[in-house]
Design a protein around this nucleic acid. Structure first.
Length: 864
RNA sequence: GCCGGGAUGGCGGAACUGGUAGACGCGCCAGACUCAAAAUCUGGUAUGGGUAACCAUGUGUGGGUUCGAGUCCCACUCCCGGUACCA
């Protein structure tokens, strides 16, 4: 066996192994129809400059799965790239006067080096950055295709407008209703923008969820609710003294006779017209402009409104109902108007109560009494009352009868909560939307003139997108002629780039299309790993985009991601002092000493700098603002990549949030060092290693070998089916603990030890690929660990002669008995009753029954 | 507000299909080694009682179903993610 350093020296091992991988292009993936492929994808990062623990966690999960699949013989593709467009680059540009392109490319270089240091097995030949014109030219091309197909349109939509900076703000940039830089109250404004018709695919996106067996249920439920398909009635109300009717959609036409007023959005034509006549309406509509466009902000507003002085005629009763303008009705939802039934809708109820509007119950529980609507609305379906001819009908009967009675003024309709995808952004650092304006006429950019390149050498003045003021960009000609024209200066939503990058990875360098034939080999992605925060938007847009590409014949299959693994956040405790203004000033945990009581509970903390106390805050997501980030690079430097990878996989299962602990990282390092020493001791011994002869093993060795194979079974299940790497690692730790205690240096003993160590090394190989590589050669192997087959369970070794069975009395554990594995029900009962503690507890109580769960427990039910 | 998720020792977590609550690791306590400390090794460690065997209590709160509930049902509290221009 080869010489082996007795000390575990991660830095030296990792450098050497990584150099060899690079030299051998160990992770290059080639299309090979003869082999089964496995496409493992992690959500690509935004290149902020520093790799954070969330990235390390995400990419370690992907790397573990990739390496496991490779050891199972699959042809594995694991690519990496950069979601390079976005707001932070613009902010850096404004703050530090660095062009976003330069800032972003420098960040990519830094982060790439950090990823490589962690030993992730990426095929870097497929690397892409979305800000690369050779990438975004294809989405520009595709957008013009969609325009020709009628899936793209232009429409006015609301934005947050900063009146001081004269710019559009993202929802994130609106703080308490004011612009984050200017501090000025934000205004809602309508501007023309580009949309993609995702609603045309709503049914397919909804129904497709049923077939996504490899997706977490929570994500599917969220997407279902987001799409929100509902069937209802579109009803036209005649406006008294008006020409155009007021149209509303309701899912509850059964409550039509309970409608007591109508509510419209501040931007609704009726409100706009009334504002010209009435001062109070004009003032109210103006006040509604001073609020952000975010749904969360609108829904939490105090519900306010004023009457427009307009009435509509109830289509069944002929009664006149007042029309109000209300701040919670959105012009972008449905028709921007709602029919209000306060007795059966809680929000309508609250509004009616606040403004003294009538509340008329028209539904009661089937067979019950008219509900008490003093305390709140009765929102369930039931039986109609106070509805004349419709009294006594149930929901479905009333739905049909009322639809029929309304005749031309109503139509059944399927409505979605989902709105079309607004893809325009009034920003510089994004992909230019390839459209050209010749006066009012719109022309898609011609394919041969693509890409419409974003000018990267720009001067940034103020906060407005420099694209609007760069004449060389704006001034152009109509495609196919010399007539002067202006370019669209809006750029795409960055979700546009991240909706198809996984297909492009499959066709690196393709110069005559978005993707080529190679994509048919690799797609769909077998497992997609990333943060749960992307459950709806990114993952819904990506599914939609895949379907658009499929309908253009570019890719195959209905869905892009076969399995989805959603990752939890990485958190850390916080420490702070409150300053004179009452604001917390945060201390990095590395700069704080903690004091513990004799149980180890943290009772106090002091800043290292001055020894004065600091307050202990809650455990929160690692962030700049809470100053509780831990830099992965520092830990890799101190312990090596394997320890960081091992700890992130061990601390929590992938889908849960992970609380970072520096001392537990130390524990992970200790484990690797102990493993190293165990192997070193084993190979340092010159006495012969026999071959394992299962039948000839003594009882101890047989039991040890049983553990080895039970561990293979456990770890394989955890890694391949459950994605619970924490319990997989715990199982290997238990095996190593057992092997450490075994000190049998006979040839048979050494043979079982050799088998156990080889198993442990292979089980850990995907998680800690560097040190296991070195250990594998130390154990006498010359072939690469990367392609060494995953260990297999020897079923015979798993068999146990004796098992432990719990004995309960009335469900409380009272004894633990050891019985032959072959013991039948009667034998188990007999052995259980024999037990002294059981005898004592049963006493002279009557035994009512005995429940036996084979191989597990006996529960004796006694009278009490 | 609405949609989704979560809560288990001093801490991270385990318990997979309703069947031994606390695996594994950290921390802490004690001992060994050391002039001493660190490192390392050995043992202990849910809480209360008991020398011990063992007993009682215990999985956010309050109810329920069951021979048996951390796990299922009902009602609630708090925390986290999303909420369409952060990515």
């Amino acid at each position: 066996m080869p010489e082996m350093d007795e000390r575990y020296n991660p830095q030296a091992i990792e450098t050497a192994v990584q150099q060899r991988w690079t030299l051998q292009s160990a992770y290059r993936a080639d299309e090979d129809p003869a082999r089964e492929k496995f496409y493992c994808l992690c959500m690509f990062p935004y290149p902020s400059g520093r790799l954070h623990m969330g990235h390390v966690r995400n990419y370690t999960i992907g790397d573990v799965i990739s390496r496991y699949q490779r050891m199972c013989g699959k042809n594995v593709l694991q690519p990496m790239g950069w979601d390079a467009f976005g707001l932070p680059a613009e902010n850096a540009a404004i703050e530090n006067n660095i062009p976003p392109a330069k800032w972003t490319r420098a960040n990519i270089e830094d982060m790439k080096a950090q990823l490589q240091r962690l030993g992730f097995g990426y095929d870097w030949d497929r690397e892409l950055a979305t800000c690369d014109p050779e990438y975004y030219r294809w989405e520009q091309w595709f957008f013009t295709r969609l325009y020709e197909k009628g899936l793209v349109y232009r429409k006015k939509s609301l934005v947050n407008w900063d009146p001081v900076d004269q710019t559009v703000l993202a929802n994130e940039q609106v703080i308490d209703g004011c612009g984050w830089r200017s501090g000025a109250p934000v205004e809602r404004r309508e501007i023309p923008q580009w949309f993609l018709k995702i609603t045309a695919y709503a049914d397919e996106l909804l129904d497709g969820l049923d077939d996504l067996e490899g997706w977490p249920n929570a994500v599917k439920v969220m997407q279902r609710n987001w799409i929100g398909r509902s069937r209802g009635l579109s009803i036209k109300f005649r406006v008294v003294g008006g020409s155009a009717p007021l149209e509303v959609f309701t899912t509850r036409p059964d409550t039509l006779l309970g409608a007591t007023y109508m509510a419209v959005a501040p931007e609704h034509p009726l409100a706009v017209a009334a504002a010209e006549q009435r001062k109070d309406v004009a003032e109210f509509v103006a006040s509604c402009r001073a609020q952000s466009t975010s749904e969360a902000a609108i829904e939490k507003l105090d519900k306010r409104g004023v009457p427009l002085g307009i009435e509509v005629e109830h289509p069944l009763s002929g009664e006149r109902l007042p029309v109000w303008v209300a701040n919670f009705v959105l012009i972008t939802y449905g028709t921007g108007a709602v029919m209000s039934v306060p007795a059966h809708d809680q929000r309508d109820w609250e509004f009616a109560r606040a403004f003294g509007l009538a509340i008329k119950p028209v539904i009661k529980p089937a067979g019950g009494d008219v509900p008490d609507i003093e305390q709140g609305a009765f929102t369930e379906k039931g039986e109609l009352v106070n509805s004349g001819a419709y009294d006594g009908m149930d929901f479905d009967t009333a739905f049909d009868a009322i639809t029929q009675a309304l005749g031309d003024s109503a139509q059944t309709q399927v409505q979605y909560r989902l709105r079309d995808w607004l893809v325009s952004r009034q920003r510089y650092w994004g992909c230019p939307i390839p459209m050209v304006y010749e006066g009012e006429a719109i022309h898609p950019e011609a394919a041969e003139r693509l890409p419409v390149a974003l000018p990267e050498e720009i001067e940034w003045q103020g906060v407005v997108s420099p694209l609007q003021t760069t004449a060389s960009f704006v001034e152009t000609t109509v495609p196919g002629s010399n007539k002067p024209a202006r370019r669209e200066t809006d750029t795409f939503d960055t979700f546009f780039e991240s909706s198809w990058y996984f297909s492009r990875y499959c066709s690196p360098g393709a110069t005559d299309g978005m993707v080529d034939e190679r994509a048919r080999y690799w797609m769909p992605v077998d497992i997609y790993i990333g943060g749960i925060e992307h459950a709806v938007l990114h993952l819904l847009y990506a599914r939609f985009f895949h379907k658009l590409m499929r309908d253009d014949g570019l890719v195959d299959g209905p869905e892009p991601f076969k399995q989805l693994l959603t990752q939890g956040m990485v958190c850390k405790e916080t420490y702070f002092r409150v300053d004179e203004q009452g604001r917390p000033r945060y201390f990095n945990p590395a700069d704080v000493d903690v004091e513990r009581d004799d149980k180890g509970a943290v009772v106090a903390a002091q800043a290292k700098a001055d020894g004065e106390p600091v307050q202990i805050g809650p455990v929160e997501k690692m962030s700049k603002s809470k100053n509780n980030g831990v830099d992965p690079a520092v830990l890799v430097e101190k312990y090596g990549a394997d320890t960081v990878r091992l700890y992130t996989m061990f601390a929590a299962p992938p889908d849960q949030s992970l609380e970072w602990s520096d001392s537990a990282v130390e524990g992970a390092f200790r484990f690797l060092r102990n493993l190293w020493r165990l192997v070193a001791d084993h190979v340092a011994n010159d006495s012969p290693v026999g071959s394992v002869e299962p039948e000839a093993l003594n009882k101890e060795l047989k039991a040890l070998r049983q553990r080895v194979h039970a561990t293979i079974a456990k770890v394989t299940d955890d890694v391949a089916r459950r994605y619970k790497f924490n319990t997989a690692i715990a199982a290997v730790m238990e095996l190593i603990n057992a092997l450490s205690k075994a000190r049998d240096s006979s040839p048979a003993g050494r043979a079982v030890m050799q088998e156990g160590l080889e198993v442990a090394v292979r089980l850990l190989a995907p998680i800690t690929p560097h040190c296991t590589d070195a250990l594998w050669s130390a154990l006498g192997h010359t072939e690469s660990l990367l392609d060494t087959p995953w260990p297999r369970v020897d079923q015979q070794a798993l068999a146990q002669d004796e098992i432990e069975v719990v004995v309960q009395i009335n469900g409380k554990k009272r004894a633990l008995i050891t019985v032959p594995a072959s013991a039948d029900k009667a034998a188990l009962e007999a052995r259980a009753i024999e037990d002294q503690n059981i005898q004592r507890h049963v006493g002279n109580h009557e035994i009512k029954k005995i429940v036996v769960v084979p191989n597990k427990l006996v529960n004796i039910v006694v009278a009490t």
